[in-house]
Design a protein around this nucleic acid. Structure first.
Length: 768
RNA sequence: GGCCGAGUGGCGGAAUUGGUAUACGCGUUCGACUUAAAAUCGAAUGGGGAAACUCGUACGGGUUCAAGUCCCGUCUCGGCUACCA
């Protein structure tokens, strides 16, 4: 007898798929489309890990499920390749990031193919490919032309190890998200995307998204809209005034002092001569303080500026303080302190003996102008690194930025020898002297004539998140040389129907929404939300329940599991069976064996003719179980309950071992199994000489003649009685049957207070 | 500190949204096959009890004919966020 040999079967089918490209898709206007994607991976040197497998397999199950229902299903694949690891590796070894990336992509591709994913491999994209980043640069220029990509001098998070600026989203607890080193503040001129322009729409459209509530809440909090007012406070004996932002303009009469942030721009003009020294020292200290220190030490600190402001409501003189509990980047960088109502102000007032007066509430609009502010800041996008998409900008001799004309795109990353950033905070690109020079056509402002002008290229590269902000649209027409995305392809395929990932709850998932709205406004996209349904999968932890990490030595390598003889199908089914897809789960090596046994049982059912003789009479019992299973698996996949779908298939197989199997059973089993274990299922379907079209269930098999009636007395289960289903229609008959049951009679001999009959649960409860 | 999840056998987890708690898998035990083992097949498996029964979904209350599910309070764990005026 033949034995289940997954490695042999899987190789056979993978070769077929490689050759026949069954998952290659094109626009078919008359067929409904389905577009699914995972968050494309960063192809690291370590190859796929079990988390990727979970993520990709979820998408694959859905892909095959809809494909078997004959929708026009697109499932592309891509690589997010710019970023620090490849560059750091280059600095260490001298190997060009281009080379390392090429090797890593080849490895990822090979491994993804080894898992049997239904990918249209002709739609593969790579963000560091000039054919791709040409269009990333094009996107940047659209934003630049509309003033949504702009430069600003400001204090920025700076990682002294990676020697680069970081976005707010990339600072975790005061540490660099990449290397973990503590970050500092540094004043620099940087590029930003004006995401705040879309703050309101980004916030309001969250409600209608079919996304997990958790992610929606995180995005709402991140945007952090506050509705309030700005109020001017005149500085006493000065031409200056201080504008504060408050959400409680109605409490202005309780404002007994003002507080400004250490970085507050007008501080120099306000501070009195005899306070100057103390204030300047306080500011210098605050700037030096790392984020960590500011967080750990919540004890209020501050100094008096020696200046006073006039409270416009009470006309009283109130002192102006400087303190680091007021943040420069939020609101106006200055607040009116109302210690009677605000906990933080009260703490400050108590510490420095400032007056606390009971607040008399006034009309909100009396002294200020209504103003809405956001926690969200503009998106810092320039990076002082080599391995990124070059920003398509050049500077004239006065330092003014000019767009590189579209016909000069892509601005290619030059090949260089030394990838190290210099200490000035400029990227290694600054060393590519020839590359820096560029000639740009400029229109003379007076004569209107166009002449070529020598300029110097921007040496910053774009944040990798910019590259991933539009890739979902590139999938629709990945090789288009005329457009970033082809309008016809976009209107057929997009937006993405299912997008699956386990990371980037705010950053990436907010940026794609921002770009979508912008490009919709520019007329390039016919929709304003890029992702219909978001699946946010959980992590897979090590068997010890901890996060897998090389240093802990608890990493499970999915390719090891396959090559140990279990095969890709077992790995796939195991990761779907491990628990609800959106919950974290711990790896359990022994349970992998259980899944293998299940697939082995499927195999034997189909191929071991000695054990299972086909019975083509197709008994009623088989038909009932089969139809029940089809319904359960279909509904479970729709609800993304992959674990219970697998359990239902296991139950079905157990039943077939008991009751015997028909060819209809085998065909149904193979079809239902295919999304999870496509190789084995294909092998079975080949033997059965069947296509893979998704089976339908017939309700007539689900309606049985008899039903088990559950009888409770005072809510406790006392009997189960099998009765004709017909009788369920008449409550009186049912109650009569129940009462005459021997077992029940025992409990109700002292009389019945009332009876409850629940038809949909086949249940009777008797209260005595 | 704030917001959001979660807590069910020895373990991972099911449970039609108020209606038979513990599906499925792992582990364990027993049996069949085998000289033997592995593999495979079959059976049992929440605690107590000989049994009838009884106790059981983190803990304490409540609503209900009926609560893992709803309400109030407490504890524990996880995630996000962290002086956002």
């Amino acid at each position: 007898m033949k034995r289940y040999n997954p490695l042999e079967i899987e190789e056979k089918w993978q070769q077929k798929w490689e050759k026949n490209k069954p998952y290659k898709v094109e626009i078919r206007p008359s067929v409904p489309k389905m577009f699914l994607a995972e968050m494309f991976p960063y192809p690291s040197g370590a190859g796929l890990h079990v988390g990727h497998v979970r993520n990709f397999t979820i998408v694959d199950v859905l892909t095959r499920f809809y494909e078997q229902q004959r929708l026009n299903v697109m499932r592309p694949f891509g690589y997010d390749t710019f970023g620090l690891p490849a560059e750091n590796y280059a600095i260490k070894t001298g190997t060009a990031p281009q080379e390392v990336t090429k090797i890593n992509i080849a490895n990822f591709r090979k491994q993804a193919k080894r898992l049997g994913y239904a990918i249209d491999w002709d739609r593969e994209i790579n963000t560091s490919d000039p054919e791709y980043y040409k269009w990333t640069q094009w996107c940047f220029l659209q934003l630049f032309r509309k003033g949504l990509a702009y430069q600003k001098e400001s204090y920025q998070w700076w990682c002294p190890v990676d020697q680069t600026v970081l976005a707010n989203e990339q600072v975790e607890n005061g540490h660099c998200w990449r290397c973990g080193h503590e970050v500092e503040k540094k004043k620099m001129k940087q590029w930003f995307f004006k995401i705040t322009e879309y703050a309101d729409e980004l916030l309001e459209d969250i409600d209608a998204l079919d996304w997990p509530e958790k992610i929606k809440t995180m995005q709402r909090n991140w945007i952090g809209r506050s509705v309030g007012a700005e109020i001017d406070f005149k500085v006493k004996d000065s031409a200056h005034s201080i504008t504060v932002f408050t959400t409680r303009p109605d409490t202005i009469k309780g404002a007994t002092f003002l507080v400004v942030a250490p970085e507050y721009s007008k501080l120099d003009y306000i501070v009195s001569d005899n306070a100057k020294e103390a204030v300047m020292k306080y500011r210098a200290d605050a700037l030096k303080k790392s984020e960590i220190e500011r967080q750990e030490n919540k004890e209020k600190t501050g100094v008096f500026t020696g200046a006073y402001a006039i409270n416009p409501a009470t006309k009283e003189e109130i002192p102006i303080w400087v303190a680091d509990y007021v943040l420069a980047g939020y609101g106006t960088g200055a607040i009116m302190a109302v210690p009677y109502n605000d906990e933080r102000d009260r703490e400050f007032a108590e510490k420095f003996n400032l007056p606390i007066v009971e607040t008399e509430i006034v009309d909100r609009d009396l002294y200020g102008t209504p103003k809405t502010t956001y926690r969200m800041r503009d998106w810092l996008i320039s990076r002082q690194r080599y391995w990124g998409c070059p920003i398509p900008i050049a500077y004239d001799k006065d330092g003014n930025p000019h767009a590189i004309p579209e016909e000069q795109l892509p601005v290619m990353l030059p090949e260089i020898e030394d990838y190290k950033p210099d200490k000035t905070g400029r990227s290694a690109l600054a060393k590519a002297k020839d590359w820096l020079k560029v000639s740009i056509p400029v229109k003379d402002s007076k004569t209107g004539e166009i002449h070529m002008e020598e300029m110097t290229r921007e040496t910053d590269t774009l944040d990798g998140y910019a590259c991933s902000s539009w890739y979902l649209w590139r999938y629709a027409s990945p090789h288009d040389t005329e457009h970033a995305w082809n309008p016809e392809a976009i209107s057929y395929w997009e937006p993405v129907d299912y997008y699956c990932g386990g990371d980037h709850a705010v950053a990436h998932l907010l940026y794609v929404r921002f770009w979508c709205k912008f490009f919709a406004d520019e007329g390039y996209l016919p929709f304003r939300e890029p992702i219909k349904k978001l699946l946010y999968n959980g992590y897979i932890n090590a068997p010890d329940g901890k996060k897998m990490s090389k240093s802990k030595g608890n990493v499970i390598d999915p390719l090891d599991v396959i090559n140990d003889g279990y095969g890709a199908d077992t790995l796939r089914v195991y990761e779907m069976f491990i628990g609800p897809y959106d919950m974290d789960a711990a790896w359990d090596t022994r349970s992998v064996g259980g899944v293998y046994r299940f697939l082995n049982r499927c195999y034997n059912l189909c191929f071991d003719d000695d054990m299972f003789v086909l019975n083509d009479g197709d008994s009623d019992k088989n038909a009932i179980v089969r139809n029940k299973t089809i319904k359960k698996v279909t509904e479970d996949i729709h609800k993304c309950n992959f674990n219970t779908a697998v359990a239902a298939l296991m139950e079905y197989v157990n039943e077939l071992y008991k009751e015997g199997v028909t060819s209809d059973d085998l065909t149904a089993l193979a079809k239902l199994l295919k999304p999870f274990a496509p190789h084995l299922a294909s092998e079975m379907l080949e033997k059965l000489d069947s296509d893979d079209e998704w089976p339908k269930w017939d309700d007539k098999y689900l309606a049985t003649d008899t039903v088990e009636l559950v009888v409770q007395v005072n809510g406790k289960l006392r009997a189960r009685i099998t009765i004709d289903k017909q009788k369920l229609n008449d409550e009186a008959t049912v109650i009569e049957i129940v009462k005459t049951n021997d077992k029940v009679a025992e409990y109700i001999k002292d009389g019945i207070k009332k009876t409850i009959f629940v038809k949909k649960a086949n249940l009777v409860n008797i209260v005595v």
